[in-house]
Write a protein that binds this DNA or RNA. Structure first.
Lengths: 260, 260
DNA sequence: TTCTACGTTGCATATAGAGCAACTAGTACA
DNA sequence: TGTACTAGTTGCTCTATATGCAACGTAGAA
């Protein structure tokens, strides 16, 4: 470890362990020690000992059949604590349940974290698009409806940072011009909702609206997402009213008093 | 750290970090460095540096208002991966949704982990008892209906270990005699379900049934839980049929073929 | 049967991490 | 307003830990 890293005053062996945990993904929920060694640039005995320590506290376990490591149930225990003490998570649950029942599409609550959208809650409809999103999933904020809502009500520095990171083209409708994105955000502030028509994922549309706290600050976004065959462009105006209303319902449960 | 711990071959600074994470609870979701120092027997500068490292990777954050630390969203990101790659979690979701809709009580999926019951999935009814359980919550296995189901279909060593840990009396109906517990487990194997009438929590009843995998092994339990005013003792026989059927539905989705 | 890859572990060494002390900031109390 | 106390941070030192290397064992593939 270089002196530069040392000056950072973070514990490098703890960082190793956390980087190992974060290397598990949806696509790769199982990991071999040798692969982690290669990916993270750590000696395989370092990885082996760190994994062993993580396993001793239940953060990972070695699958006896595949001999690979997977994330363990201590993660779930902690996530229950994270969820249960999030006001917006708790207050949104019944509203999302009703919305999903009425509209018939999957709905989410999300926030901006580290210049990304992260989904805090999700209620699936009866005919979900499999593996589209999941609680904890992170997505780019500039080409998802909830991300655009959150950016629209964020300060300029955050928007500039997202733009600086680059607006990668994920799909044919992805916004890649900074000026175009800023225009979109302006319109979103005016309309009170955002939509995404195949901006991020092929064949996937979504609509989102802001959730306010008791101070009137936008703290989260509520969104519905589904295939374009079911969330057709011509249905977006009527659906957006439902989404705005649901987001307002959650806001009111958060103590927000809308001014008429 | 003693030589004995050293022989354990676990990385002590990583263990410190994991113990700090695990010290967050439902009742104490916010932590001060000085409190952690006292609780964990670590120097406050050790705790401070470890927290700083955990924060740098998003596992905790310092609440600007309370100046205390809370669990961060990296936990949520990992838990999404844990959930999504659990077959029993995925396959149980629609069954739990239907069951909760039909019965009107909260339902769970749980497994045995480290001699405790841990809840993997939860679908809340429209009138939940607040803060009863949450995903990731751990409970003693000998006085919850799902725990008793899981013990009933576990090998004798596991049951003996639970008994050796002691059968603490949580409520007036808690089973505290080992022989009595073994009789209960035998009856559960015979009946195909378990119930708890205020064995663990005051005023709370529950019913659970086993979930089988494709090999016919019990891998989880499905349960419903509610206040005794709604889950009355005389309703348990009819409710248990619904719970057994729902658990069987999940089992079949897991590839289990029941022998007739 | 042999070879290769993976994971584990003994050992040596360099440095990271733990603890102490000093400092800063904030709060409570007189 | 001033003082005292507590909490948290950070510089510094020293020792024990963590890392990496090499060797070993095991399992699977050729």
């Amino acid at each position: 470890m270089t002196l530069m890293e040392r000056d950072d005053n973070h514990l490098s062996s703890v960082k190793n362990a956390l980087r190992i945990l974060k290397s598990f993904t949806m696509d790769e929920p199982e990991k071999k020690i040798s692969d982690l060694s290669a990916t993270l640039g750590l000696n395989k005995s370092t990885v082996s000992r760190t994994m062993s320590t993580l396993a001793s506290e239940g953060f990972v376990f070695k699958d006896p059949e595949t001999k690979k490591y997977r994330l363990g149930l201590s993660i779930l225990s902690l996530s229950g604590i994270v969820n249960s003490h999030m006001d917006v998570y708790r207050e949104s649950q019944p509203v999302l349940n009703r919305l999903v029942e009425n509209i018939g599409e999957t709905a989410h609550i999300s926030v901006l974290d580290n210049l990304e959208v992260i989904y805090l809650n999700k209620v699936e409809c009866n005919h979900p698009v499999r593996f589209l999103t999941h609680v904890g999933k992170r997505n780019p904020p500039y080409c998802t409806s909830s991300g655009k809502v959150l950016l629209a009500f964020s300060n300029d520095k955050i928007v500039e940072s997202v733009i600086s990171k680059g607006l990668k083209k994920f799909n044919k409708n992805t916004i890649t011009e900074p000026e175009n994105l800023l225009l979109h955000l302006k319109k979103i502030r005016h309309d009170g909702y955002a939509h995404s028509i195949e901006e991020f994922l092929e064949g996937v549309n979504s609509i989102a609206a802001p959730i306010y706290d008791y101070k009137g600050k936008v703290i989260a976004a509520l969104s519905v997402v589904g295939p374009k065959q079911r969330i057709q462009a011509n249905k977006i105006p009527s659906l957006s009213k439902r989404v705005i209303q649901a987001a307002m319902d959650v806001s009111e449960r958060m103590g927000y008093y809308p001014r008429k």
